[in-house]
Design a protein around this nucleic acid. Sequence first.
RNA 1: GGAGCGGUGGCAGAGUGGACGAAUGCACCGGUCUUGAAAACCGGCGACCUGCAAGGGUCCGAGGGUUCGAAUCCCUCCCGCUCCGCCA
Length: 425
Amino acid sequence: MLDIRRIRTEADAVKAALARRGIDTSDIDRLVQLDGRQRQLASERDELRSQIKAMSKQVGLLRRDGKAEEAEAAQQESRDLGDREQGLAGEAATVAEEIHDLLLRVPNTPSDDAPDGGSDADNPVLRVQNFDPDSFGEHQRIPHWELGTRYGILDNERAVKISGAMFTMQRKGGATLARALLQYALDRNAHRFEEVRPPTLVTSETLTATGQLPKFADDAYHLERDDLWAIPTAEVPLTSIHRDEILDAADLPMRFMAATSCYRREAGSAGRDTRGMLRTHEFDKVEVFAYVAPEQAEEQLGEMLEGIEATIADLGLAYRVLDICTGDMGQSHHRSFDVEVYAPGTDQWLEVSSVSWFSDYQARRGNIRYRPGSGGTAMVHTLNGSALAVPRVWAAIVETYHRADGGIDVPDVLLPYFRGSDRIA
RNA sequence: GGAGCGGUGGCAGAGUGGACGAAUGCACCGGUCUUGAAAACCGGCGACCUGCAAGGGUCCGAGGGUUCGAAUCCCUCCCGCUCCGCCA
């Protein structure tokens, strides 16, 4: 969430920044108004409390000195002050609640560097790598779900029987490929990031810190009896590792990575990309994450993007990098880049990674601070990126590595994970 | 799930209705001493809100309640430990 002090002192600048997302900014006006009222109420209450405290001390002294009548009078006066204070407290609680609810729903302000735009159609393509459209043969122009069925490495029919629509199951070399990709991505990043196996069922507080709650509750799986949520990405538990803590500046940046299953209800997506495994309710992903001091954020962002590009490039896949525009950014994002791989079978660019800088938006929601050299405490910045989202990379590999004479090769960098085989199928 | 015991500052740990935001120790920071360091000694040392400042206010797991006054009493919940049950 945004800093209420920033909203108070720079309301116009905040509104201008949010307007670049193409959203209504009347919430900011309302927040400024509520904030003024809250501050007024707080100062009145502080004054009353101060009087009550002084009065109570006097009561104690009077009673000790045996002056019962005077003590009784002071008690009565203190009671009256207490009643007034109660009234103010009630109003203050109402105002505080409205402020909190509003703040949780106001999105992050985009970075000045983020390009303007209204939708994903406006995202500038920063670069295209390894891509030559004429290099693909007819045998590579077959969608992965056809190849998957042909070679028995994808069995979605049975996945649907087991779990319903939009679930997927890989078998044999296809299953090996999915697991190999996870291990490959972890190994690629192990020199920079601490490996973590976090819980994948989390509390509402955890899901609120990253921004999925309260606005996007419908997108997540909820286990009602236990009030737990299935994570949509490892970003969720990783961000909450140090929630409600104050970090030592010397420890920053702190970097974590995790391979987890991710669960998404994907409401409203039926009918598009539902074949194969491009869009499913459950998939595996390796996520990289960092807590940094604000001045370290841009460098960390560049480093993450670079690492992710190298991971994809070394798999021998064509990819491109998009600079996400203000109209397409997620609620919590301050700056964001997408990496898309080229899937020849369907002639599509598939989003396999999103590298994002959240400024202090998530840190404030999760109360994650550090002690800067200047003294006191300040909010950290958080960043994360998908190091490798398995299903779409799986699809691109199966299509790209399909041989003209039949069979599917293992990309060189994955050979160590294939038990001596050099064939996926 | 049942029974018992707990939850206090970075850590350990006192405090069971009245000057407690909280003793003490450790850790940490500054200083004295020393060629340097250690030791010793002196001083400092929580977070947050508000205010130009002086100051005022909030926070002892969370939320409610009793009281003139709550870390302290009562209720609910959460978490931890021990034992039992169950279990990969």
